[in-house]
Design a protein around this nucleic acid. Structure first.
Lengths: 139, 139
DNA sequence: TTTCCTGCAAAGTATTTGCAGCCCA
DNA sequence: TGGGCTGCAAATACTTTGCAGGAAA
């Protein structure tokens, strides 16, 4: 999946950059973070443009919005169903890939109830905080 | 479960009211909604107090915060694990009780990964919008 | 040229915080 | 009385919107 000139006629270099930034990270960034990254290569880009385009990407199904409990929205260019862990220590959002059993159960639930989709967010420790805790315990 | 004078020494009538309002509804209200309801019987109560106490209830495990995709947070005084549906039409939040299969799969996932909890929110139609759609189709 | 897009700044929501005073233990 | 809690208002954080101009087809 890519986002470039050839794809559609409402092209803008800003949108291409925003999508590139979003799809080249796995860190589920906030709009603010995407903006900062975009500014590195395009200093004049405005926050409004980032918000507008992220909303557009979500609307058109090219990105998803991850519901976190930390005020601002997080985005993700991987639209395939997968789950998330929100770290209870640092607030980072990471992927969590469900067991076969869980994936199946979720799929059944969608089908049998006629839901359109779901967001499943676990609460726990992210990799980095888990590591820190392990080292702390070792001392 | 109740919330009253005898429970702790930092009692306030505002907090008691807020908890009463929250626990006597199943509609997963926003802070704003709770405030409106509280004002009916205590017109002088301030929004800040409602926000402060809802945050406190969540912190102490007496309520949960439901992540919705509609800007403001929704609260729920039922802390037992259960899931939610956010209506894609009107934004209302409703309960969704999981199938046995799903409940089991979720429990396994928590246990095997060492997570603390989860929030599972489906996207679909709430009861009222589902009904409306059915009547619309019938015509 | 037409249409959609952008940057900027202002406006809009949702929520938090500082402060002086009040209430309960 | 003292600590915690309140109302108020200001401050913050996040996001959206109006507008005039700019870039793509």
């Amino acid at each position: 999946m890519c986002y470039n000139k050839s794809m559609r006629n409402n092209y803008s270099s800003q949108r291409e950059l925003i999508f590139k930034v979003l799809s080249s990270t796995t860190c589920h960034p906030t709009a603010e973070w995407v903006w900062e990254r975009c500014r590195e290569s395009m200093p004049s880009i405005s926050k409004a443009t980032v918000y507008r385009n992220l909303a557009g990407l979500v609307k058109s199904g090219r990105a998803i919005e991850v519901a976190g409990k930390f005020g601002s929205s997080h985005f993700d260019a991987r639209v395939q169903p997968h789950n998330h862990v929100v770290c209870r220590v640092c607030g980072a959002v990471e992927d969590s890939f469900p067991s076969k059993e869980l994936a199946l159960a979720l799929e059944h639930e969608l089908e049998s109830r006629g839901y359109d989709g779901y967001g499943l967010t676990f609460e726990g420790l992210c990799e980095s905080c888990r590591q820190k805790r392990i080292s702390a315990k070792a001392q």
